[in-house]
Design a protein around this nucleic acid. Sequence first.
DNA 1: CGGGTGGTTGAATGAAATCAACTATGGTGG
DNA 2: CCACCATAGTTGATTTCATTCAACCACCCG
Lengths: 242, 242
Amino acid sequence: MAMPNAFVNKLRGYAPLDRSDVEALEAACQNARRYPPGYDLIREGDEPSVVFVILEGWACRYKMLPDGGRQIIAFMMPGDCCDVHVAVLSEMDHGIATLTTAKVATIPRPQMEALTDARHGLTKAFWWTQLVDEGVLRATIVSLGRRTTMERIAHLLCELYFRMRNIGLTDDGPCEMPFTQIVLADAVGLTPVHTNRVIKKLRSAGALEVTPGSLIISDISTLAHIAGFDDNYLHRRLKRSA
Amino acid sequence: MAMPNAFVNKLRGYAPLDRSDVEALEAACQNARRYPPGYDLIREGDEPSVVFVILEGWACRYKMLPDGGRQIIAFMMPGDCCDVHVAVLSEMDHGIATLTTAKVATIPRPQMEALTDARHGLTKAFWWTQLVDEGVLRATIVSLGRRTTMERIAHLLCELYFRMRNIGLTDDGPCEMPFTQIVLADAVGLTPVHTNRVIKKLRSAGALEVTPGSLIISDISTLAHIAGFDDNYLHRRLKRSA
DNA sequence: CGGGTGGTTGAATGAAATCAACTATGGTGG
DNA sequence: CCACCATAGTTGATTTCATTCAACCACCCG
């Protein structure tokens, strides 16, 4: 059997899937297409009819403000999908756009229902992803509300680092985050220039390096120390009885 | 039949429930107890085993920081419940505490599963509540990240106002929010003194009044105007085909 | 070679935190 | 009953932090 796709890979970490579950998932992702960076997969106000699954590359949920500002709400990386049940809503309250060129599959609602009906393992895995996604949103709120800008940026980078590790996208070595400082600023609620100054400090602490178009985490432990990072909200531990 | 409880009431707004659904929900809430203000229903790190349902009063999700600061992540009011599937997690990543004296029911996991298994209407209503809750979290992120403090406070108050209206807890008249400025400050990520100064401005704009222990919204339209409030994320519109 | 994007730095302005009082209120115990 | 204390709200002065505005560099790409 070929290497399973990122979606299958991630879900398998959350609940045991049998061969038929995996085959059904693989089949549902067959229609994947490739999109350029900055492509709007869906916009605020659109009617959602499919579930997006990121197979390669990065994307983000975002919301634009009247004054032209943008707030990035969450990052999506390979294996991530938008809410399994979005399609019950009549209108998106935010947009989803690619950050890099990305390969993404779309699963229409009826097919999604067919996937979960009578597949207990898959259903449970989806619950789990949803609970983790909510935990990430809550952690973001805590960062924006109560952490210093330094902790905030360090915390976000730690989160992304550990999420990448969980899906095998990085190992102990340096880890490249494929987005600009502008994008980071839109995620942490700061101006690009102040973001740059904070990055400068993190760089001189030896935690980071910078290249045009991406950040490279060179020392995750100092970064985690600065952030006061605790990965409990990513919920990697399984409950035995479940 | 007696007046249905707040939980039933809210869920009925999201999907048609038949008589047996309603009876099952009512039965599940029979064990409700009353708690004093400031009572921790569950703490970060605890193992979740039940779903909490707020029947009367207010509660909040929150997280404490190492320096003693608190970030309130979300407010819960009558009819709200915590994630239907929390019990699959081994550990809470945040706490839930009452803000006022509150009547809350606890539904153990097996009973929750019995409720959703084979009750399509209920299951769909739960999806919906979860999607709305996520929309609220995203809106909070946008507020904390990109809105001015004035917009931020006004926006939160608008949200709470419209959520109260949706469940019949207020009408066109003035609307009382039963929490202190300290609590509000913990929710919007500001200090109590700066929160107080912003409230002062909102008060002199005629939008608010203040009494010890609560805020009173006296003019929702100016408040909504200041906040640039759009209630789309509360998803009250149903999709026809769904 | 010229223009665009991403990154970097400096100086001035403005917003929020901090520190410090002080008021008003309600509840408790002497 | 009153003295006392704790809590909530309010205000002023000062300091810290982030934004704003402006410039400039480096690089890639046409």
